[in-house]
Amino acid sequence: MLERTLVLIKPDAVERNLIGKILTEYERNGLKVTKMKLMKASQETAAQHYAEHQEKPFFERLVSYLTRSPLVALVLEGEEAVKRVRALNGTTDPDQSGDNTIRALYGKSVSENTVHASDSAESAQREMNIWFG
Rank of each mutant, 00 (worst) to 15 (best):
R16A: 10
T45C: 13
A41G: 10
G90T: 03
K37N: 03
L38G: 08
S120V: 01
G20F: 14
Q48L: 15
T91N: 01
N17Q: 08
S111V: 04
K35E: 09
L66T: 08
L62W: 13
I102Y: 02
V85T: 12
A81D: 01
V110H: 10
H53D: 08
Y50F: 15
R84Q: 11
H53W: 13
N89T: 09
Q54H: 12
L23F: 09
S118Y: 00
S123A: 13
E52H: 13
R84H: 13
E25C: 02
G20Y: 11
E25Q: 09
T34R: 03
G98M: 02
E27G: 10
Y50T: 08
L66C: 07
L8V: 03
S64K: 15
A46V: 12
S42A: 12
R86K: 06
P11R: 08
T91G: 04
N100T: 04
G78R: 12
N29R: 13
R126D: 05
K56M: 12
Y106A: 07
A124E: 01
L23V: 09
D12F: 07
K108Q: 12
P94W: 09
E112N: 05
T5Q: 00
E80T: 11
N89C: 15
S109F: 06
E52A: 14
Y26R: 02
T67M: 05
